[in-house]
Write a protein that binds this DNA or RNA. Structure first.
Lengths: 329, 329
DNA sequence: CTGAAAGCGCTAACAT
DNA sequence: ATGTTAGCGCTTTCAG
């Protein structure tokens, strides 16, 4: 920067101002500076800039499982929105485990990100979120909710799971199995509540034998569903509460030689990108990942700008995709 | 840091050294410093550290389409390898367009990343790569190759496409259509070369009417394939050269009421994560994305450490998944 | 084994 | 309209 200033015959201050457009500079001065920049091949140093200015124009994202295509789209949506606003994205994968999550968020904090978006792992409300709050770094939670006073955005859960279940009920099913995701996180609880509410509405008691815990792990789900579906008194329909559970359930059903929807009707929360090519085509409640990501960024930028407001929790509606695994028609 | 030093009764220099373990510190001094850190809730400032030390421990990744699940896995693999080595990942999406790519890589350069991994968009060898080289920032190209002297890693293309085609040839097919991806990038060219070589090997001339350009765009591929397959003299088999092409081709075939493999045999380059649930199950050449990502990071870290070596181009083998869309059995 | 101090490259008052 | 200069928070010789 000193070189540029010297060549252009101005001070570094002026160079800084033409680069950032932070104050009026005479057209001729500006062009001399620009010429000098071109001549020297100068590149500004954002690290130094961040240190001097106290802002990094950087946002951190802690995601629980980058492998999951669902989160892949989320990263994409977030990156896009941030980049439009002149921010860059630093990503870290927490592997859905508090220890890794702590490592990721600490690193983000050390790097003085201007804000943070986190898809909390189970238990992070004690291990990692408090420290983030302490540093007063703007924070928005995504995907799963946690009881801590900050902005959150996630998919609508209970009503969606409820309509999925009701659809089965409307078709006459009375013994409906359910495969839950990871215990202890809000999305699992809320979706299950939706299932329970739908049954309650028709005066049907929840049969514990039909409630499976898939732990958000495909293999576990497959195993559980196989056990349930190979029993004598198997349900006539199944509702799966997230995409990993769906994969497991589908594998189990297929391995038992049962057919969907003939032998068992099936509906699920979460859609698949190429579900057109699946067999059977799944009737599902699809999350609007784009909107979730964009909304999270919007809320975050608002906080970064210093806007005060009481924390809000936004639930983005899902879309019901009626296809043929439910056995209608 | 000054506070910590004061409380511990040492200099900031010593604080720095206990934090980084950069020199021997007396046990008692160290514990006093550690206590002071705990007491003040001090967090180091990596921005200042980067400025002073001249290294950011940051690596940039410019990816062409974060939405593509294939790239999602790549990001995951890269993040994992980097994080294991103590680096953080900054991602930018180039949307497969040089202008965006330039924006992304410039921003990465300004942030003084210690190294960069880029999945080049078509045309980046002129627009963006030279500038990266100029700054002498360690660089490794991923996915697609470009003729510039730097490390590169991507999937094996031609032999894989060749065996896919040969498989069809072995089954007796003689009129084999091919759907190519984006023109002008090495993967497209190489895969097509594999197709041509397989035919040439059996003395079959390439029939231009059977060569489709899908532009790496699902809709284009669908349209092209529909046109080809609704003609009188349609091919008896199809080879699709990347996953976007496959989706399009499959939709086209399905919409024409043709069945795979009865009416047309089908093989493709690129696998799908849940292909188990597809119908028909696709015979495909699967990329080893994990290895590609990990290898790229390994090469990059080597350069960052300053190891000299002539640039190498690594091609990670694909895996042939023999399923039923090819019509064997 | 520890401290002093000179930067790292830039921003933003404060001057002029 | 432009220049001067005091930091931003840390690392790292160089001394002791």
């Amino acid at each position: 920067m000193g070189d540029v200033a010297r060549i252009a015959g101005v001070s570094t201050s002026t160079v800084s101002h033409v680069i950032n457009g932070t104050r009026k500079v005479d057209a001729s001065t500006r062009s001399r500076v620009e010429a000098a920049i071109k001549e020297t091949g100068y590149r500004r140093n954002v690290v130094a800039r961040s240190l001097a200015a106290g802002r990094t124009h950087t946002v951190g994202l802690s995601i629980s499982a980058l492998t999951n295509p669902y989160f892949g789209s989320l990263v994409h949506a977030v990156e896009r929105a941030l980049s439009d606003a002149g921010y860059v994205l630093i990503v870290g994968d927490s592997h859905d485990d508090v220890t890794s999550e702590k490592r990721v968020t600490d690193s983000l904090l050390d790097r003085k990100v201007d804000g943070m978006i986190v898809a909390p792992a189970a238990g992070s409300e004690r291990a990692t979120l408090p420290e983030i709050r302490r540093t007063r770094t703007p924070l928005v939670l995504i995907d799963r909710g946690v009881d801590i006073g900050c902005d959150q955005v996630g998919p609508e859960n209970s009503a969606s799971a409820r309509s999925l279940t009701e659809h089965l009920l409307d078709l006459g099913h009375r013994r409906i199995g359910v495969v839950r995701g990871l215990a202890g996180i809000s999305s699992t609880t809320e979706r299950f509540d939706g299932y329970v509410a739908a049954l309650a509405d028709r005066g049907i008691a929840v049969d514990a034998a039909l409630v499976l815990d898939g732990d958000s792990n495909t293999d576990v789900a497959e195993h559980e569903v196989r056990a349930l579906m190979s029993g004598e008194d198997r349900p006539t329909a199944l509702v799966s509460l997230n995409n990993a559970m769906t994969i497991g359930a589908l594998k189990a059903v297929r391995s038992l030689g049962l057919s969907i929807p003939a032998d068992v009707a099936f509906v699920c929360y979460d859609d698949f990108e190429w579900s057109d090519l699946f067999e059977p085509k799944l009737t599902a409640a699809a999350q609007d990942v784009e909107t979730i990501g964009a909304t999270a960024v919007e809320l975050l930028l608002r906080r970064i700008r210093g806007e005060e407001a009481t924390p809000q929790r936004i639930r983005v509606p899902t879309t019901f995709h009626h296809r043929n695994s439910c056995g209608c028609v």
